[in-house]
Every structure is written in C-alpha cells, then in structure tokens.
Design a protein around this nucleic acid. Structure first.
Ligand SMILES: [Mn+2]
Ligand SMILES: [Mn+2]
Ligand SMILES: [Mn+2]
Ligand SMILES: [Mn+2]
Lengths: 218, 218
DNA sequence: ATCATTTTTTAGATTCATCTAAATTTATAT
DNA sequence: ATATAAATTTAGATGAATCTAAAAAATGAT
C-alpha cells in the first residue's frame, strides 16, 4: 500500500505532467512538493522499483499505468470532498483545498463510492476541475483561457487555472463564479487588459486575471 | 502539533483509563495499540516530556489536562464522523469504526464544527457513546448493563460495551438496536442466560451478550 | 570541443516509530 | 525474606522520509 508521501508524489507527477507533456524533472517536483531535489531522487527510486513510475536517472519521470490509476483515485477523492465541503458544509471555494489535501488520503472504497452517490455523482469540483468517475474516467470539455478571447467574443466561466485562495478571492470580489457569462467588450492594446461584462455588469481585469480563467465559448 | 501516532496513544490512554480508573500500564497500552511494550515506553517518554501525559517509570501513565483535551477532540471527531457515515452515507453501525479511525485525524476546526452543525449537534454516536460538544463536555446518562437487571425489570437500549463488528451483527440478528425497549422475562439460574422481550418479541440471550448491552432503566 | 553553469545524484546524518534482545525493577508465591 | 515470574525499561537496529554537502552528469555558450 502507498504511504501518504508516495501518494503525494504520484499526484504531483500527474499534475505537472499534464501541464507540460514531457517527463517531469526532479527540480520541478521538489518545488511543487516543497522539498529538496535529493529527497525527490530518493523517492523516485523507490517508486520506480515498485513500478509506480518510470524513472530514468537524469531524464525525469512519468507515471506507469498503475501510478496513473493511483493518482486518479486520489484526485477523485480530493475533488469529491471539495464538492461535499462546498455544497453541504458551507465552505467557500477558496477554503476547501487544504482540508481536501488531508481527506484525499482516507482509504475506503465504500466511503468514496457512497460519498459520490450522496453528492449525486458530480462531474466537476468547485473549481471546475473534472472528477474522475468510479472507473477513473475524466470528462473533457472545451475550455479556453479568457486571455485568448477576442473582442466581442463570449463564454461561460467553467474553471480556473490558478486555484489559490488569493486568486479565488479576487474572483469573488469581481462577482465572477463558475457559470458566470462573460463577454469581452474591449481589449487595451498596450497591456492586453480587458473590459468585460460579467452577467451584464462591466468590469476591468488585468491580463494576469484573464490568463487564469477558463471559459467555455458560446 | 501531535503526530497521528501520538494522537492514537492519547486516545488509547483515555479509553483504558476510563475502564480502569487507575494509571494505565505499558502492557495494556501495547495490547490495545497492537505494538510492543518497548515501543510504548519510548512513546510515553516523549509524550511525557511534551507534557501530554504524566508518566512514571514502572508506575503507568495518566493524561495531563492538555492530553485529555487533545484526546477528547479526537473522540469528538471520531464519533461525529460515525454519525455522518450512518445517517448520510448508509453505513451500518458495524462498518463505521475503521473509517472513523482515519477521519478522526483530519485537522480542521472549521470542518469539525460545520460537520457538527450539519449533523444537528448530535449527542450520541451510532453505538450510543456520547459525543463531546464544542467545549469538549460529555453528556452523561445512567446506564446499566443488561446483565445487572433483575427479572421483570425494563429498560431502553442505549449503548454497547463491546462495539466490535462481530457483536453488533449479533444484535442486528436479534433485532436489538439503540432505542429498543427490553424487558427481562426470566433469568436461568444455572448460567444466568436470559429470556427477554425486545419491543415485544421474545428472545433468548447468553450472559456474554447481556453483559455487553447498556440499558437505561425505565 | 571545451569550459562554466545548472541540474541531478550520491553519501552521510537526523528524526520518528517501530522492532528484538538484554538488563532492570516490581510483583508473587513459598 | 528469597527466589522465581512477570512487567518494564534500556540498548541497539531498522526503514521511511527528510536534510546538507559533495560528487557527477547534462546543458549550453563560446
Ligand atoms: Mn484542491
Ligand atoms: Mn479543486
Ligand atoms: Mn468507533
Ligand atoms: Mn462509536
């Protein structure tokens, strides 16, 4: 059975791999996990010898089939718990992550599946990220960063790239949440900042904000 | 902050101390925690130096004020989660303990208090054990083992002494659950086995069963 | 192709939680 | 009171997960 630490490594490799699409490097992992490269090397050697990852000295690491399944199970639990916290325990979307980091390690198939049922088999978590179903399949949908939209284009907010509490609170202040309908009114040539309409209300937003918001184009 | 292992020790000392009412011995703890006496000694020395317990070489251990509060927090979480599992996720009372053993270690005041609220501030868990409230107070009620009842006496089932899955399943088969009204019809002199009426239905039960069932006398 | 820089790995140490085996203390039985 | 047994502690070892410092490999710039 995987230790908590091993689970965290697998999850980290999964996430970093998606962003990049090449093997994940020791340093990247170390930064993501707030640890030292030497510790990462150690752990990767262990995970490799237990066949959870495919790791080549100096060349980086990718998940094995088993490792990917394990990572998906953890992500499934993480996101289901986030839904539970928001929908039933009145957490806001910027408060759930830390607790879910703990809850994702609870080992009980029965718990995961009854929670899933209790929540009515949600497909997305409070940040718009897809929840692997019981067979670990992820649903996909077209999403485009707001920063890649052109003037006059329109979309529905369906996710965030940065899901840090800080960024989520900025969105709260702007009354932007999942489901908000956003239209680009104008783009400032100089700095690419945008004037947009959020459910009819006009707002100004920076490029940094725009490049962390996913929309589903209408 | 307490490690998971330290939390388990504190909880074990709390439970064993209640049963006995004298200091808890190294061997008892080792048996309860499925570990070796030498490991227990090690841990007790650490807990002692951090003031969680009062431990005297060869003389056993009791919880300090802090240690007791810490234990109560863990027990509070354990029992709240058990209520959640039974009332909302369709677990039966013999299935909850193992998962609650994991959930009790989740660290989040906010989680504990919103869960408490979500469950409507329950006072007892699915096994009839009292749940410490937000100020860590336990509610008390008079309970007497069925084995100490006399013929013709009556009571309502409010708890179990042995809450192992095996025993709980026996009760299920006898249709005995929390709230069942039980009257002693007859006691066999020879072996103290009993004929009782459970909500009107007559059953025979052994002394072993009778001595693990708590009733609130009517 | 060579050298300097960056990245990664190895070597060796540390802390926690556990173990076994040996030593010590306490309890008990005559 | 002594001796035997039982309980407990100490000593020394191990594995997981981490660290720092040093060595080795890869990168990339001239
Ligand atoms: Mn999260
Ligand atoms: Mn999320
Ligand atoms: Mn329990
Ligand atoms: Mn219980």
């Amino acid at each position: 059975m995987l230790s908590r630490s091993e689970e965290n490594y697998l999850k980290a490799i999964f996430h970093l791999r998606i962003e990049k699409n090449s093997a994940v490097s020791t340093t990247e992992l170390a930064e993501h996990l707030n640890t030292k490269p030497s510790s990462v090397t150690d752990m990767l050697q262990r995970l490799n010898s237990n066949k959870w990852v495919d790791y080549r000295k100096y060349r980086g690491v990718i998940l094995s089939r088993n490792g990917e399944q394990a990572a998906l199970k953890i992500i499934r639990k993480h996101r289901l718990w986030e839904v539970f916290l928001v929908e039933h325990l009145n957490f806001s979307w910027d408060e759930v992550h830390e607790v879910a980091e703990q809850l994702e390690h609870i080992q009980s198939e029965q718990l995961t599946s009854s929670l899933d049922q209790f929540l009515n088999f949600p497909k997305y978590d409070p940040h718009g990220d897809p929840i692997p179903d019981a067979t670990l399949q992820l649903s996909r949908r077209t999403k485009k960063l707001l920063s890649n939209f052109k003037r006059k284009e329109c979309g529905v907010c369906i996710g965030v790239k940065d899901s840090s509490a800080d960024f989520l609170k900025v969105l709260d202040r702007l009354s932007i949440s999942l489901g908000s309908e956003i239209q680009i009114i104008d783009i400032e040539e100089f700095d690419q900042s945008m004037r947009i309409a959020v459910d009819g209300q006009q707002k100004y937003i920076s490029t940094k904000i725009a490049s962390n918001l996913y929309l589903n184009p209408i």
